[in-house]
Design a protein around this nucleic acid. Structure first.
Lengths: 117, 117
DNA sequence: AGGGGTGCTCACCAAAAGGTGGGTACTGCA
DNA sequence: TGCAGTACCCACCTTTTGGTGAGCACCCCT
C-alpha cells in the first residue's frame, strides 16, 4: 500500500506521506549515493533491513514514482533500482533536513550505525 | 515515547525520527504560522486530530526540544505552545520538502483538506 | 548430496501507532 | 440543574507497520 494520495493538509503532509516508512529515506539516499543498485547491494548497504521490508518499501517507492525498477530477463534474476527524476528532486528537497539531522546528532550525542560497506 | 535518539544511519534518519508521527509536521507548521497557540487553537487548526493524539504528539515534540510548552497558573487552565529555536530551524529545513510536496499534489491531482479556520 | 548466488512470496505474529469513549478539576452563565 | 469554556488523563481497542521463518525457481560449483 503506497502513499494515500490525499486529502492532504499541505505540501509537507503530502511529502511526508510519500517518504514515511522505516527504510524509505535510507533507500533513497543509498540510491542517490550509488546511482544504480541491485537488490542485494541495497540490502548490504542497509544493515538490519530484512528482505521482506526491503521489497515492500521498494515496491511502494516504485508505485509512488520515486524509484525505477528494471527487470532483466536473466537467470539468476537481475533487478536494478535507480531514482526517478522525481526521486532525485525529492532527495534534493530532503538535503536540508538531513543537514539539520546531522546537527542534531552532534548536539544530542547520538550514535551512528556502524557497518563495513 | 519521543524519538529514539540513535543509533542513526545518517542525518536524515535522525531528522525523520524526530518528525515522524501523523500530526507532528502539521503541528510544527501550525505553530510556525501563528507563533503562539493554545491547545484548543491548535486543535481547531488541525481538523480530525483527537485531543489524545494532539496531547501525545505535543508532548513528544516538547521532549525532543522542538516545542516550548508554557503553563500559566490560572483557572481555567491556560497552556501555550510555541516553537523553540530548534523547532524553527527544523521548519526551515522542512520548507523545501513542503514545496516538493505542493508540486506533487498538483501533479497527482491530490485533494486538499478543506476547513474553515 | 551439499553449498553458493539471484530476487523474491507467503503465512503468521509482535509491536507500534492511532483512535474512542469515558472521565477529571475549575470557572462562568442561563 | 444544565451548558459553555480551559487542558488534559485513563482504559481499552483497532489499525498499521515492521518483522520472522518458512518457502520458491533457476543457475553454478564442490
Amino acid at each position: 500500500m503506497a502513499a494515500r494520495r490525499g486529502p492532504y493538509f499541505c505540501g509537507i503532509d503530502a511529502a511526508m506521506d510519500v517518504v514515511s516508512g522505516k527504510w524509505k529515506s535510507l533507500i533513497l539516499w543509498e540510491l542517490a549515493e550509488h546511482g544504480v543498485r541491485r537488490f542485494a547491494q541495497l540490502r548490504r548497504g542497509l544493515p538490519g533491513v530484512s528482505e521482506k521490508m526491503l521489497v515492500q518499501q521498494l515496491r511502494e517507492l516504485e508505485e509512488d514514482g520515486l524509484v525505477h525498477r528494471e527487470v532483466f530477463p536473466e537467470v539468476p534474476p537481475r533487478v536494478e533500482y535507480a531514482l526517478t527524476e522525481d526521486g532525485v528532486s525529492l532527495n534534493e528537497a530532503l538535503a536540508p533536513l538531513g543537514e539539520w539531522g546531522v546537527e542534531r546528532m552532534r548536539r544530542i550525542g547520538a550514535e551512528k550505525v556502524v557497518y563495513a560497506p
